[in-house]
């Protein structure tokens, strides 16, 4: 690999291919977990050093370690040897950072996207707006359980925080 041509955009593109371990239809970039990418080149050797900053969705999110491992393996596979991973908690992660592509992919997968009003807009299956909350908590810290009173299917809602 020619280290001199490595750009931050290239690293972002690679990270966009790293899926979230718990919701594999969206990438860690779509989820807003990757906060910063910094690429620097050594003046003499031109060797690239890469610094990636990530932030947890919820403070106890058990996927953080796996996300870090997946970033490491994705970037080392591309020949990056000088890699530093940083975790930051401020500013606190918010669903506002989720990309529009990410929200659409969630919905296609059957998970209702986060809404500012704190409740899903519609059933991700039949699109009915007749929905009700089952529980504020779901299979991962970031989701709640809802159901559709039209098609009667339960579904998950990505909580807005």
């Amino acid at each position: 690999m020619n280290a001199a041509v490595l750009t931050e955009k290239q690293v972002w593109d690679w990270l966009e291919q790293v899926p979230d371990p718990e919701i594999p239809v969206i990438s860690i970039v779509d989820l807003g977990v990757v906060r910063n990418v910094c690429v620097e080149h050594d003046d003499d050797t031109q060797a690239a050093s890469v610094k990636v900053t990530i932030t947890p969705t919820y403070s106890g999110c058990p996927a953080m370690r796996e996300i870090a491992t997946n970033i490491e393996s994705a970037l080392t596979q591309r020949g990056i040897t000088d890699l530093e991973l940083q975790t930051q908690i401020a500013p606190a992660w918010t669903t506002d950072w989720m990309s529009e592509v990410g929200k659409q992919r969630l919905e296609d997968y059957g998970i209702a996207a986060p809404q500012a009003k704190g409740a899903p807009e519609r059933c991700p299956q039949c699109k009915s707006t007749a929905v009700e909350k089952v529980s504020q908590f779901g299979s991962t810290p970031c989701k709640a359980q809802w159901r559709c009173t039209d098609c009667l299917e339960p579904f998950e809602y990505f909580k807005c925080i």
Partner: peptide, 20 residues
């Protein structure tokens, strides 16, 4: 089941806050 999940999630948040 829903309560079990909610309790486990609450515990997880609290343990995460503990680490901080």
């Amino acid at each position: 089941l829903e309560e079990d999940i909610a309790l486990a999630n609450t515990a997880l948040d609290l343990i995460g806050q503990t680490q901080l």
